[in-house]
Design a binder for these strands. Structure first.
Lengths: 233, 233
DNA sequence: CAATATATTGAACATGAGTTCAGTACCCAC
DNA sequence: GTGGGTACTGAACTCATGTTCAATATATTG
């Protein structure tokens, strides 16, 4: 930081401190006093600017989502290829990837919309890959995009374990040029490049699912969104 | 429930209620009073049997991990194939998959050990697949197993979003015979079966990673970045 | 400069959490 | 039965948290 001064407004400092806290220690450990201390202000000021803890969280969500949208358009123009998360890893994102990893576990409207967008974007990315000849076409572009997105996001959620086992920090903004990248990306590209199943087995498995689906589909044809679950004990 | 009686001891009822709570509403919303109410006992009894909330959580972890180990040996004998999570979905697991989805996000020693085991198991499963001709061999069995395990576990963590978007409940014990399975498994097997990248692009990407890795390795000290083993045998 | 609004503080309050504990009911050896 | 140990209750305690608020400093404006 040049001049040693922080020219961010106190409100912005609080928001950034909160994002860092949420990312580092999780929502449950992120208290108003902790955020205030991190931002170098009093606890009362947090309430003054954000009304409540929920309001603070909401502002953080908005800021993070907005940041992502900005880099997304940028990444789209550069051609991110199959790496769904590439957009998140451009410079100056700080704690945002780790913050996202935390918020993905929840079911807030914001996280739902974010995931919907990412899945939709993935479909676009993959489609471009198909057009440019990098990626094979498929009968189920949406399903394939969803699976790819969930795999990427899930790995991001497990980034601490990934780092522990493979030595790669998936939240690292400089991951693209990190020497550790290969231990994650090499297996990924190997799997995506040629698959891991033999052709025979894959064809067999796929036809099995179609059989089950067709079989059950003839007896029960409804497609309900929100369904069962809950305590039957 | 025959006879309408619950022959579980109160301690077991509390533990099961806690697992259900942790799975359904998450650790932060799981209070001693809520667990007690769910189990039909007084809050004091929770403390009497488990000493503290942390003790209760620990007991739940132990019970869940133990349950998984039991089904793992069973699944191993049946040949689970590439479905890493198949072992978790055999009958009578109740809230355990959702509980795991919640605990994976943390960094407790228990969750670390559990993930280490799952990754290690995945390597074993894949190796069997290679031996039986279902799965292609690889130069990096450990890396490939880790990626597959993280993808599976990550998807499990996102099960609520997966259900919302694709209509599949990955925590459903009866998933294997569910008509909804195909919308998840079909893209998965398509990707794993033939990959999604064209051969040219995959080879190109892979060699790029090797180049980066080798390049950085020659200019910087290798030791601090290469603290894990890439290949095992 | 005066007046008004905004930023900021730190102490006080209310709530809900985990935990403690004295007391009660149940069960089983002697 | 009687005594003692275990299961169990529910109220009370402690503490951390979100939130409120009056007071003060700083900035803005007329």
């Amino acid at each position: 930081m040049p001049d040693g001064v922080d020219d961010r407004t106190a409100k912005a400092r609080i928001r950034d401190a909160a994002i860092a806290c949420f990312a580092d220690v999780g929502p449950s450990q992120t208290t108003a006093r902790r955020v205030a201390a991190e931002a170098g202000v009093s606890p009362g000021l947090v309430m003054h600017h954000f009304g409540s803890m929920e309001g603070l969280r909401s502002s953080c969500d908005d800021h993070v989502v907005e940041t992502i949208r900005r880099m997304k358009t940028q990444a789209l123009s550069e051609g991110a290829g199959i790496d769904i998360l590439a957009a998140l890893r451009h410079a100056d994102v700080g704690h945002i990837p780790a913050y996202i990893a935390r918020m993905l576990g929840e079911e807030t409207p914001t996280s739902q919309r974010l995931i919907d967008e990412i899945v939709s974007d993935a479909e676009t990315y993959l489609e471009r890959g198909v057009e440019s000849g990098m990626i094979r076409p498929t009968d189920d572009p949406k399903g394939r995009a969803a699976v790819m997105a969930f795999w990427s996001l899930g790995a991001l959620m497990l980034h601490r374990h990934v780092e522990r086992i493979l030595g790669v920090d998936l939240t690292d903004p400089d991951l693209a040029t990190s020497p550790t990248l290969a231990s994650w990306a090499a297996p990924v590209y190997e799997i995506l490049g040629e698959g891991i199943l033999t052709q025979d087995f894959a064809a067999n498995a796929t036809s099995t699912f179609h059989a089950i689906s067709a079989d059950e589909g003839s007896t029960t044809d409804q497609q309900d969104t929100d369904d069962h679950q809950e305590n039957e004990r």
